[in-house]
Structure formats: C-alpha cells, structure tokens
Design a protein around this nucleic acid. Structure first.
Length: 499
RNA sequence: GCCCCUAUCGUCUAGGGGACCAGGACGUAGCCCUUUCAAGGCUAAGACCGGGGUUCGAAUCCCCGUAGGGGUACCA
C-alpha cells in the first residue's frame, strides 16, 4: 500500500483540547494519516494544551474516541507513546523554556516587562494615529544582565520574539506558493507567557522540529502568523517542514453565506438535523466510511471522474498536489449520499452488527439471527444506520398497532379494503410457501379474477401485515415474519375492518 | 483601519493559453424499471465575479476593482 519511492512522511495532528472534535479536525487528521500511510511514515498525535484557561477536560477523550472510530489510528502520541514522548505540551514546559533562553541569548528574543495596561495604551494610541499596531519596543534593548536582575527581583515578564522592523519574510506554502510579508506589519509576538508556559508559536515549532515532523498540515488561519514561524525556524537554525495550509470550512448554504460560526454549529442540529461534531454524527447513524469519503473530497480531488473511495483507496490516491486553496461550504446532502453508498458496500454481516446498537437503544432486543435476515432487505434503503429501526421495527413487534387509517389507502374505501384483504388472506392461508416464486403469480391471477389492479392486493396485505406504507419487498418480508404471524395480522385487520 | 488568502453550475470540483459552444459528482426536474419505498438506467436545466491588459488565441498569465474568508491576543 505504501509508496516505496517516496521518503517517509512524518505528519502530526496537534489539536488543542478546547472542545469537541469536529469535521475540520477530522479532515486535517485524515490528510495527516493518508500522507503518512502512503509513504510508510508516521502519523503523530500531539496535544497542544498550553492554554489552561480554555482547557476542556472532556475534549481529549472525545478526540481519541473520534479518531479511533474514524479509523485514523495514530502511530505515535498520547496513549501509544513513542520515542519523542511526552506528546502533551503541558509536560514539555522546560523544553520550550530552554529554547526561549537560547533565542534570548542569541538576540532573537527578549524579556519584556511591560504591563498589560501599558500595552493597551500604546495600542490605542497607534490606532488613533493610524500607525501599524505592534509592540513599541520598550524592552527590546534591555541588556540581558538588567533583564535577569529584574527577573531576580520578582518582576513579572514575558518573552517576545524580536521581529525585524524592515525587510520581508517569505513562507512557501505548498498549495499557494510563496507568500511574502513586510516585516513592518509583523509584531514582536509573545513566545512565553508570564506564567512560564510557551504559546503555540514557540511550542509547536520546537515540537515539530524535535519530533522530526516533515509536513505540517494546518488550517489557513495560520497563514498570517506563519512568517513568525519561519523566523523561529531560521533563528534556531532548523530546516523548515513543508507547510500545507488547508482551506477553511464555510457554513452550509442552507444556513446562509459565509463563515462557519459557533452559532451555526449549534443551529445545524435544529435547522438541518445534522452536526459538525464527529461523535454526534456517529450517533445519528453516519458511518466512518461515509464521513471520511466526504471530508476527503472537500478541498481535494483525484480526477474529473471518480470520487467514491474507501480509506485504503484514499491512502493510495491522496496527493498534496491536488489540494485546493479556496474555502468550502459544507454540503450535508453529499454526506448522505456518500454514507448511503458506503452502507450499500458493506457485507450483510458487517451491516447487521452496525445497526444492532440502534435497535438496542430503541428498546428492541434484536437477535443476530433475525438481524441477518432483515439486513439485506433494508440495506439499499438506508441513508443512515438509525433509519434501520424505523424501517424494520415491525419485524420485531409481536403485536403491531393497526388502525383504520393505516389500513385504508386513499384510493379506495374501507369496504373495498376489506374485500381485498379477505381475498388475499384466503389465498395465503392455502400455501406454506410465502416466497415470491410461489405467491406472486397467484396473487396477480387473483387480482385479475377480481378485476382489480394487483397493487391493490399488494397494498392491502402490506398495510395489514406491516402496519407501514413503505416496506421492503412484500414476499421477503412475509417470509421473515412467518406464515403464522402473517395470518394472525391479516385476521386482526379483517376484524377491524368488519367492525 | 491595516496585513494576508481565495474567486468555474445552488454545493463539491475538473481545467494549469488552443483538445472547452467548459467535463464529473451531489442536489433539483422529467422519463424508464417497479407491488410500496429505495436502488439502478436515461435525459434536462444549471457556472468561468466585473473591467482592463498580454497574446494570432485566455476559464487558464498580469493589473485594478468587487465579493467572500482569515489574521490583527500573555487563544490555538
């Protein structure tokens, strides 16, 4: 499966545990996984938990559950370990401090003692005077001795990167090419916070280098700060990874035009009956194959004809050359399409096991034996797994609820329904074989005899036996229900119609 | 405000100067198949944001608008 000609890629997925794992994360992780597997490299999972304020203790479990469920097992990282451990940034504090100190001693960074209030003041003044908003440089030229002395005196401080005032910084993004930034618009970004913890800009760069990451897949929102990242790599004398900035997801067209806000992710459930979060999607009956295929094709393409792929096929076909830079609007209709199509590709045994939990959750104790029988009947009718319950629940009920409304088709009256049902009942009673081969023709002959359309008899039987208007093919359905129960239900319907 | 990215059917996209009166997929509409619902088959409607260049020739290259998005935090 792996591409022997390519050098092994080490790609990392490095989310911050601040919320539930969503489709955007899933796509980034997928691409990391694909490129690593394709080249015989490693997919690394690192946790960027440097922001204690936004930390969500439930996020990490949701993350590992989501990734595992999607089939994106990582080779290195939290849980599984690896030679570059630890893989949680909160456990790597000293490492970042060491490099921060090196940067300072080299003159590429400096200790800054400016207060938040003072910073805010200069910002406002700059805004008022229409100057570039950036750090005013107060602490930039403090001597190391003086800075160390002030730190020893207990003054609070941060570490800032010393961004040049002139010239440009260029980053090479694999999907967009070279992008240049004027340094005058860049800032002396904070690298280490006053609590001693590094921010993303330092921590991620140090980790990516130390962990030998060759390709960095991340969202386009990182483009504006990428010159800082380039500068950090250069200052430390390291070779840059290949930067791959992925397009952003926009809100579904049904919700309007434009960016995907938190409000939109909340609205998805009520307005579209869907969700932005992986574990929600699982609960709604989407399967990993469907979600993987769908997100893979958002911002990436293979050729002008094919778009239906399994994870294994994606590993084989994926290429960063075909990545698309423009933002994409989520289209859940297409998710439905991919999901349904992948459900149809599943083996009966596999699908039966996957729909089982949905029956259990609905309070239906579905045995494997019956599940295996009904699965072929509903397989091509499912868009999501949970629909199996609605479509097949009548197989499991000892006593389906019948009503005149359910029995009567709008096209004819109750008296006619009674006649059709009775006639069909008599016919079915006479045979032990409920198969299509045995019953189809006799039922049609009977309809002809009665001078009615076959559909009328079919519908009457369907309504009485299943209590549903839309079901899998009648004869297979009746075979599974069994003659005894079929007759029982027909009798009940007749009694009801006679009353 | 300033900086950066992006711009082909409603949506996802193919296209990287002539092969394009722009191809595929989802969705939509119609027809066929059919005992219902699906699945499947066929057909249809549907796009190169605008304006300038460059060129014999531009969806493709350049510039300017416009629009959408991102950033502008001791968040990631």
């Amino acid at each position: 499966m792996s591409n022997k000609n390519a050098t092994p890629v080490r790609a990392r997925f490095a989310p911050s545990p601040t919320g539930l794992t969503h489709l955007g994360s899933a796509r980034t992780a997928l691409y990391d996984y694909l490129i690593a597997k394709q080249t015989g490299g490693q997919f690394v999972l690192r946790i960027e938990d440097t922001d204690q304020k936004r930390f969500d203790p439930k996020a990490e479990e949701d993350l590992t559950n989501s990734l595992k469920w999607l089939g994106l097992q990582w080779d290195e990282g939290i849980e599984v370990g690896g030679q570059y451990a630890p893989y949680r940034q909160s456990e790597r504090k000293e490492i970042y401090q060491k490099y921060a100190r090196q940067l300072i001693e080299q003159g590429d960074a400096f200790y800054c003692f400016c207060s938040a209030e003072k910073l805010e003041e200069t910002r406002q003044a700059q805004q008022k005077n229409k100057e570039n908003i950036r750090y005013d440089g107060t602490c930039r030229h403090l001597s190391l001795e003086e800075a160390d002395q002030r730190i020893a005196n207990g003054e609070p401080y941060v570490v800032r990167f010393k961004m040049p005032y002139e010239g440009t910084t260029t980053i090479t993004d694999f999907v967009r090419g070279e992008i240049s930034f004027d340094n005058q618009y860049l800032d002396d970004y904070v690298l280490v916070k006053s609590n001693g913890l590094a921010v993303y800009h330092l921590a991620a760069m140090v980790d990516d280098h130390l962990m030998n990451i060759t390709h960095v897949f991340r969202g386009e929102e990182w483009l504006p700060t990428s010159p800082l990242h380039v500068r950090i790599y250069e200052a430390l004398g390291w070779e840059q990874p290949i930067w791959v900035h992925l397009s952003l997801f926009l809100k579904p067209r049904e919700l309007g035009k434009g960016k995907l806000s938190k409000r939109d992710t909340e609205k998805m459930k009520e307005a579209l009956g869907t969700s932005f979060f992986i574990m929600d999607l699982k609960e709604m009956g989407y399967i990993p194959e469907g979600i993987i295929n769908w997100v893979a094709m958002m911002g990436w393409s293979y050729d002008d004809k094919s778009d239906f792929f399994t994870l294994a096929e994606l590993v084989e076909k994926f290429s960063i050359e075909k990545l698309n830079p423009s933002a994409v609007a989520l289209d859940f209709k297409k998710l439905d399409y991919f999901n349904a199509k992948h459900i149809r590709e599943l083996s009966v045994e596999d699908l039966a096991q996957r729909i089982k939990p949905f029956f259990l959750k609905a309070g239906i104790d579905a045995s494997d034996e019956i599940l295996l029988k009904i699965t072929p009947l509903i397989q091509e009718r499912l868009t999501t797994l949970n629909q199996a319950v609605e479509k097949a629940k009548f197989f499991f009920k000892d006593d389906i609820e019948l009503s005149l409304e359910k029995l009567q088709e709008s096209k004819w009256d109750l008296a006619a329904t009674l006649i059709y049902t009775k006639a069909a009942y008599e016919l079915i009673k006479k045979t032990d074989d409920l198969s299509q081969d045995a019953l189809n023709q006799p039922l049609r002959d009977l309809a002809k005899e009665m001078g009615v359309k076959p559909g009328m008899l079919f519908a009457s039987v369907r309504n009485a036996v299943t209590g549903e208007r839309q079901t899998p093919p009648l004869f297979e359905t009746m075979q599974i229900i069994g003659k005894e129960k079929v007759l029982e239900r027909l009798e009940k319907a007749i009694t009801l119609l006679e009353s």
